[in-house]
Amino acid sequence: MSFTATMQRELLLAWRRPAEIINPLFFFVMVVALFPLGVSPRPELLATLAPGVVWVAALLAVLLSVDGLFRADHDSGALEQLLTAPQSLYVPVLAKLAAHWMLTGLPLVVMAPLLGYMLHLPEQAIGVLFIAVLLGTPTLVAIGAIGAALTVSLRSGGILLSLLVLPLYVPVLVFGAGVVSYAAKGLPVSGVLALLGAMMLASFTLAPAAVAAGLRISSGN
């Protein structure tokens, strides 16, 4: 009940301000586009860089978008209402994370294969890139939300958030970019994809509890 209600509210709010869905996507595309300009447009070089470049850009896009995850609710006082409600915070937080991933993560997933193609990634690796980003971005959202919950009441949250969260993103980056390089070399990928999926399930079940605890700390309860 509270899951669908929170989900509906989040989607409706986002629908009324579509720029917040579009901006992380633009950011993602622009950062990736900077690499051929900055490094070299040679296809073979871009192909080796592609997994890392796409993943780092996706990671930063998620990080930037996750910063605002609780801010509007905090400023308007809706978060206080949620915290004082006589029920567990776990379910509404889970709904918020799921909605946030649908709004900002999913567009990145759809865009990733196109960017991989533009960076001359071999064709057999593009499908794997799609699946890897699909499995990896929820983990990024879930971990980033813990940092966002802890920094929501601070004025200069953004840069602090990246200091807290970026080291925690290392496993996703390593496995996510690694599996795409594997695929480009024609090596088997299912094991690493399973690991990415396991991390997604673990982070989505555990992180809401940590986020709820973080929100309670931030609001001083």
């Binding site: 971990i143 813990i146 940092g147 802890l150 807290l164 080291p167 925690l168 290392v170 496993p171 390593v174 496995f175 690694g178 991390m199 555990l206 940590a210 605890a213 973080g214 700390i217 931030s218």
Partner: peptide
């Protein structure tokens, strides 16, 4: 103190995964 505590708990869980992922990488 409480915020740092929560972050350390998350970090300890994560540091194990970091270790294995980096070795694999």
């Amino acid at each position: 103190g409480r915020a740092a505590g929560l972050l350390s708990v998350v970090g300890v869980i994560n540091v194990v995964i970091v270790k294995y992922s980096v070795e694999w990488w």
